[in-house]
């Protein structure tokens, strides 16, 4: 039978694809419990690398720095990106709009090496002229991350605003709301989901970034990706496997949590809809 053969083919394709995606991750998790110091040689089950990991102050300092940069970056990027998105969608055609819109999206397509290099040059020049930043580290990495992640936020906000009917804002204006009131009563509450998405994206981008951070960082400021990269450069290490396993676990918990919340909201919405149909 044709259909039987096809379904077998489909099944094997799925298996192969899944294996391709998940076997490396699975291996990484397995080897994080390897007692041996040499990664590809199995020396029995052990959690000793987790212990090593927890005792390493260097790793915890870099995790803390990365989280701090990511959250400060996400907040500023959301603020600035939202303002840029608002200006582009709601302010009509002002002078220089096309230029502004192009420059907003430039960081999206700019190679990270160039962004990093140019920002480094900027910081060096600034230090020359105004004496700030006197040392590179948290400040400079955060600023660099804001410049590129706000572009992503601006894109998200733009698309959300474009899909949001303008007549809601006009209705508020018609009912007596002044421009600032419209922003706080109508526009921002309706933009909130987009802003949350933008915040999360900016947070992730910052947490993920290795290249730009390496350019604009200074001595003593090492983010988590920088640390992992510098250690792995010297060869595979079992404690980094343990760290990666913990990161995978954290991401998995996050995804499951988000799915559960969405599932509950969906249920709630269905219930409300049923209620309104019954009455």
């Amino acid at each position: 039978m044709n259909t039987g053969k096809r379904s077998k083919f489909l099944f094997s394709t799925i298996c192969f694809g899944m294996a391709f995606l998940y076997i490396p991750i699975f291996l990484l998790i397995v080897y994080s419990f390897n007692a041996s110091k040499i990664v590809p040689v199995w020396g029995g089950f052990s959690t000793r690398w987790y212990g090593v990991l927890f005792e390493s102050e260097e790793i915890w300092a870099s995790v803390a720095l990365s989280l701090k940069i990511a959250s400060v970056n996400a907040c500023f990027a959301t603020l600035l990106g939202t303002l840029a998105g608002l200006a582009l969608v709601r302010f009509g055609s002002f002078k220089g709009r096309t230029l502004f819109s192009g420059m907003i999206s430039a960081p999206l397509v700019m190679p990270e090496v160039i962004t990093g290099l140019s920002l480094l040059l900027l910081f060096i020049t600034l230090k020359e002229f105004i004496g700030w930043p006197d040392s590179r580290g948290f400040n400079t990495i955060t600023i660099a991350h804001i410049t590129f992640s706000m572009a992503y936020v601006a894109v998200i906000i733009q698309s959300r605003l474009a899909g949001m009917a303008q007549d809601l804002e006009e209705a508020a204006e018609d009912l007596g709301a002044r421009p600032f009131r419209i922003l706080t009563d109508i526009t921002l509450p309706l933009l909130a989901p987009g802003m949350v998405a933008g915040w999360l994206l900016a947070f992730t981008l910052s947490l993920d970034d290795l290249i730009i951070a390496s350019f604009v960082s200074g001595p003593g400021a090492v983010t988590l990706p920088m640390l992992i990269y510098s250690r792995v450069k010297l060869g595979l290490r079992p404690d980094i496997n343990a760290l990666a396993t913990i990161i995978i676990l954290a991401v998995a918990i996050g995804v499951l949590l988000a799915a559960w919340i969405m599932f509950r909201q969906q249920k709630q919405r269905e219930l409300e809809l049923k209620m309104s149909e019954e009455s």
Partner: peptide
């Protein structure tokens, strides 16, 4: 400007504020 006119409008799309209850929508003005 619209917010100072003694005029109100009913929109074709109704333009009801989706994040407010019926009561709050009506009370907004």
């Amino acid at each position: 400007p619209p917010y100072e006119r003694p005029v109100n409008m009913m929109f074709q799309s109704y333009a009801l504020f989706p994040h407010m209850t019926v009561e709050k929508n009506v009370a907004y003005g």
